[in-house]
Simulated scan of single mutants.
Amino acid sequence: MFAQGAVHVGHAVDPAAVGASVWPEFGFSDMVRHATGLFGLLVVFVYSFLIAFALPGVSEVVLLAPIELGLTYWQRMAVIIFVSGVGKAAGSVFAFHIGQEAKEAGPIVRALRRSRFDVVEWSEKRTVELAQKWGYAGLAAALCVPGFPDTLSIYAFSVLEEDYLKFAVATFVGSVGRLVITLVGVEAVLAVGWV
């Protein structure tokens, strides 16, 4: 579906066109959309790692990577989703560590509260609701929402929670879930012929 020149469900899809129309361009996403081979998997991993704690944007762009490793379409998508999930889980552990440090560094939280848009208050409110009701499953569920910036959920949970392993597992599950939901949604749209 996303590989340039590939025909899937009777449609030829140009990844650059899909990427430009669905996901905003943040520089790194262009590199992902042109990543091929084993180096391409490294690019997917690094992009997913960075999107967990530093890059703006969404992680779904990794589905556009035209990685060719002699695999079938579905095998390639599974490998990309797995590598992206591992990258985001690793990046989330880094963000988790930063969040743990921020709990101890009051000036950082106070500065965020004084910012024009109180990110801390908004994310804390939503995150506390999810964490109290669902715990780490709430983090995984929040990360399953396509198009929502991952960084906000990850940092908000990182300040509230304390278990690195559970945090990484929840992030992996949420990341994989998000990409699977996106892929299934795009496939359904293509199958119905809305695109």
Rank of each mutant, 00 (worst) to 15 (best):
G138L: 00
G135W: 01
P107Y: 14
L112W: 06
R114S: 12
S123G: 07
T127K: 03
L165F: 02
F96W: 11
V176G: 00
R126G: 09
L139N: 02
L112Q: 02
F94V: 15
T127V: 12
F148Y: 12
A168E: 02
V145M: 10
G138H: 08
W134C: 05
E129A: 15
T151L: 12
H97G: 15
Y155Q: 05
L143A: 09
V180C: 06
V145N: 05
F96V: 10
A140M: 02
A102W: 12
A131I: 07
G99K: 14
R126K: 15
G174I: 01
L130Y: 08
Q100G: 15
I98V: 12
G99V: 12
R113L: 01
V119H: 06
R126M: 10
L160G: 11
S92Q: 05
S115P: 01
S92R: 02
L152F: 08
C144S: 11
Y164K: 09
A111W: 07
D163E: 13
W122Y: 06
Q132C: 09
A102S: 11
E129G: 11
E162S: 13
A156E: 11
L165P: 05
A168G: 08
G138R: 02
V128C: 10
A141Y: 13
F167D: 03
V169N: 05
F94D: 08
K166D: 11
S153E: 00
T171S: 15
E161Q: 15
A170W: 01
H97K: 14
L165G: 01
E104I: 09
S92L: 03
C144Q: 04
T127Y: 03
G174R: 00
R113P: 00
A141S: 14
P149I: 05
F117R: 06
D118Y: 08
Q132F: 07
I154C: 04
T151Y: 01
V159N: 03
A140G: 03
D150S: 13
F96L: 14
A140K: 07
S92E: 00
Q132S: 13
A131T: 09
F117H: 06
A170R: 01
L112K: 06
E124R: 00
L112M: 12
